[in-house]
Structure formats: structure tokens, C-alpha cells
């Protein structure tokens, strides 16, 4: 059987809210080392990869590998019934056709149980190659969310260019154009506001803002977002959840015809 308990149930809620508009349904794969999900959006230009480590849970048991297909909209409906401070326990029997979610309030006065029907989903598991990236940028997640939101009111795509000292986001649209530059700033007193750039080679790539905006829904998960860029490779937009795992998004760059 599979059983996992996470004290910060709010974290699961945030994860599902971050991906539910991008992917319709997906298999949650559970094995000894943890809980993961990998799925492409319906247009097949972006991929979501979630991994939550077994030791990130208070209690974790998985006797045999299981793959549980769920419709994200339904999962979200159920998790919305959990309080942000609730502990969440997920439970499923081997070969069961449901997964049970138990919500426990911090004072343990209220205990709720919801069963979600599982479904069969055909999905091929794609390997994610370990790539060397030309540039890696770590910036406050809220800052990135604001940039892609602001630029969306001007254009449809953003050119992200990274040099040694700064990362620039630029767009052009019918009403005009916009450029936002963030300088490297490894501020020591406020680490949550730091912007760090690690570069092998300057790089400039263009992406659809619609997807980046969707990825930015993961902002509540982490203080920082990590962007990894290489010429002709999908950008990686990564949110690390300390001691628990990561949520990564991959998006193909727009290629000039």
C-alpha cells in the first residue's frame, strides 16, 4: 500500500494550484524514494516535473511502485477542502481504484476524509537529460512573477537575455515595447531579495509569456525561482521547496523561422 503524511498540507495545495491549469490529468508515481509527477501540457510545448522526496514527508510508506492517474481539476476540488494548516495523509491500497485524503486540523479536533476516484492515463515517461546550461539565474520568485505579468500587458513573447551582471526581459507589442533589467545582487542582509547569475556564455532566448505566467503560479512555493537557459534547449523554470523537493517547468524557446 501507499501512505504518506505531510504536516504542511498547504504545500500540496500550492503544488496542485500551480499545475492544474497547465495539465489536465497526470499520473502520480510513487516509489520508495518519493512521490513524483511528469506531464506535458496539451499543446506539447511545455513539461511539468514534480518530485517530493520520501524524507520530506513525516511518514511515508510505499510497498510497491504505484502510478495513480488523477484529473488535476478534481484533485484541486478536494484539496481546496483542506485548511492551509491541516496535515494531509494520502492513502491508497495496491491495485485500488481510489486514493483517500485525510485532513487533520492542527488541534486535531476535525478529521475529514475524501476519496478520489483514480483513472487510467496513458502517458509515456520522458527522460529529462542532465544538460550543462549557458546561464543560470536565481531571482526572487515574486519578482519573476511580476515581470512576466507586467510584460504580458505589452506583448505575447519575452526575450530573456543574460549577461555576466544582469538579466534582461524584453517584449514588443502593438502599443509599444518594454524592457526590465535585474542586476546581479547577492545581498547578504536580505537573502530572500538576492539575484544571482551564473554564466558560462551570454544567452538570449524568446519564450511565450502565456506559459511563463502559468509557471509563475508556483510562486507561493518558494522564495526564489531558478531559470536555466541554453541556446536551442528548453528553458527550465525551477521552484525548490526546502527539504521537500522541487517543481520544474520546461518550455521550448521560440525559434526564428
Amino acid at each position: 500500500m501507499f501512505e504518506a503524511r505531510i504536516a504542511q498540507g498547504g504545500l500540496l495545495k500550492k503544488v496542485v494550484e500551480a499545475i492544474k491549469d497547465l495539465i489536465e490529468d497526470a499520473n502520480f508515481d510513487c516509489n520508495n524514494s518519493g512521490f513524483s509527477l511528469q506531464a506535458m501540457d496539451s499543446s506539447h510545448v511545455s513539461l511539468v516535473a514534480l518530485s517530493l522526496r520520501a524524507d520530506g514527508f513525516e511518514h511515508y510508506r510505499c510497498d510497491r511502485n504505484v502510478s495513480m492517474g488523477m484529473k488535476l481539476a478534481n484533485l484541486s476540488k478536494i484539496l481546496k477542502c483542506a485548511g492551509n494548516e491541516d496535515a494531509i495523509t494520502m492513502k491508497s491500497e495496491d491495485n485500488g481504484d481510489t486514493i483517500t485524503f485525510m485532513f487533520e486540523t492542527p488541534n486535531q479536533e476535525r478529521l475529514s476524509e475524501f476519496d478520489l476516484k483514480l483513472m487510467d492515463i496513458d502517458s509515456e515517461h520522458l527522460g529529462i537529460p542532465e544538460a550543462e546550461y549557458d546561464a543560470t539565474v536565481k531571482l526572487p520568485a515574486g519578482e519573476f512573477q511580476r515581470i512576466v505579468k507586467d510584460l504580458s500587458s505589452i506583448g505575447d513573447t519575452v526575450e530573456i537575455s543574460v549577461t555576466k551582471d544582469a538579466v534582461k526581459f524584453g517584449t514588443t507589442g502593438d502599443i509599444g515595447s518594454a524592457n526590465i533589467m535585474c542586476r546581479q545582487n547577492k545581498s547578504v542582509d536580505k537573502p530572500e531579495e538576492s539575484t544571482e547569475i551564473d554564466i558560462n556564455e551570454p544567452v538570449a532566448l524568446t519564450f511565450a509569456l502565456r506559459y511563463l505566467n502559468s509557471f509563475a503560479k508556483a510562486t507561493p512555493l518558494s522564495t526564489h525561482v531558478v531559470l536555466k537557459l541554453s541556446k536551442d534547449l528548453p528553458i527550465v523554470v525551477e521552484y525548490h521547496v526546502p527539504d521537500v523537493g522541487r517543481l520544474g517547468f520546461y518550455l521550448a524557446p521560440k525559434v526564428e523561422e
Binding site: H44, G127, I128, A252, K254, V255
Partner: peptide, 14 residues
């Protein structure tokens, strides 16, 4: 479609 091909090639290289 170029986008899809690029994603496909990337993951196929793993």
C-alpha cells in the same frame, strides 16, 4: 510544431 520538435528532441536525448 518547431516547439514540439525541440521538446521531443530534448527529452529523447536523455
Amino acid at each position: 510544431l518547431r516547439d514540439q520538435q525541440l521538446m521531443f528532441d530534448f527529452f529523447a536525448s536523455a
